[in-house]
């Protein structure tokens, strides 16, 4: 192989190696871009995940409050219903026994005032 041929060979090798370096350089730049964009995506993913989880927790809290409200209203309903039952019972008793009670009381008052024995 002549010197000229060797020189030509080396030139070809250097050229291909330069091309290869450029390809690698380009790949590294692209990788850096991907990572930089990925940081933004990761931040968005964090916020989305945080929001979604908070939303689930808020729903859980609402359910706790709603359950408490339902139970309290149920209990309140019982309290009022008992009072209404009592009132109904009183009204019925007044209807049935009112006059008889009045008669008895008048007798007691008259006895107290020395009129009836």
């Amino acid at each position: 192989m002549s010197n000229g041929e060797i020189l030509s060979l080396l030139e070809k090798i250097v050229k291909v190696e330069d091309e290869a370096k450029e390809v690698l350089e380009e790949a590294r730049r692209k990788a850096e871009e991907i990572i930089a964009e990925g940081e933004g995506e990761a931040k968005k993913a964090y916020e989305k995940s945080y929001r979604e989880t908070m939303s689930l927790l808020e729903r859980e809290v609402e359910e706790v409050l709603e359950k408490a409200r339902r139970e309290a209203e149920e209990e309140a309903g019982k309290i009022i219903s008992e009072a209404e039952e009592y009132a109904k019972k009183i009204d019925e008793r007044v209807h049935v026994k009112g006059r008889e009670i009045a008669k008895t009381l008048v007798k007691e008052l008259l006895r107290g005032m020395g009129v009836l024995k």
Partner: peptide, 22 residues
């Protein structure tokens, strides 16, 4: 390989962020 590695890192970073957010 360099690009794949970058994508893999990004995917992992996103996954960690989701977990961290939660």
């Amino acid at each position: 390989t360099i690009i794949e590695e970058a994508r893999r890192k990004v995917a992992q970073r996103i996954e960690e962020s989701i977990k961290q957010g939660r």
